[in-house]
């Protein structure tokens, strides 16, 4: 089927097989930050923005992205470096495999929630599994990042 979509601002017209999940399509277009961790919508690794909303790209049939804007971490280089730096400073990057999906959701949260509490942060990010860090280091990093943003960073 014919599709038109924007990946990280770049317009793409393509002929696709519609039962391709958005996830696999994005990887085929070079967005390797988008990872698959499960088949059951449970892990959050494949999080991208569909029209600015954090979404599981494994769950979205490709044609749902028709005429839509998709953002992956590849399209948020400076944000990734800024937020990622806080993770790196905590050693909370660890294996890194869950990081892109996690960053996508943290950045979405930062836009959506104003001054969230620790519980609100944990609830918003709970769909992002991580097996390495035990989440505690990620929480430290996120709080420092939000504080940095509050101070106008």
């Amino acid at each position: 089927m014919e599709i038109k979509l924007w990946i990280n601002g770049k317009l793409i017209n393509d002929d696709v097989s519609p039962d391709t999940p958005l996830l696999e399509y994005l990887r085929s277009k070079g967005c390797y930050s988008v990872k698959r961790g499960c088949e059951t919508s449970n892990c959050g690794l494949c999080t991208v923005w569909l029209e600015d909303k954090p979404t599981l790209s494994c769950t979205v049939p490709l044609m749902r992205a028709n005429n839509k804007h998709i953002t992956t971490l590849e399209g948020l280089k400076s944000d990734a470096e800024e937020l990622g730096g806080f993770l790196a400073d905590e050693g909370a990057d660890q294996c890194g495999f869950c990081n892109p999906g996690f960053l996508m959701n943290v950045l979405a949260m930062a836009k959506e929630l104003e001054d969230p509490t620790e519980d609100e942060i944990n609830e918003y990010l709970t769909g992002n599994l991580c097996r390495c860090t035990g989440y505690t280091g990620q929480l430290r990093a996120v709080k420092k990042y939000l504080e940095h943003k509050r101070k106008g960073g």
């Binding site: 954090p54 979205v60 959701n105 769909g127």
Partner: peptide, 13 residues
């Protein structure tokens, strides 16, 4: 709904 998987999932379903 807030216990259902996560925000990204609830943005889909």
């Amino acid at each position: 709904v807030r216990h259902i998987v996560g925000v990204q999932f609830r943005n889909c379903v």
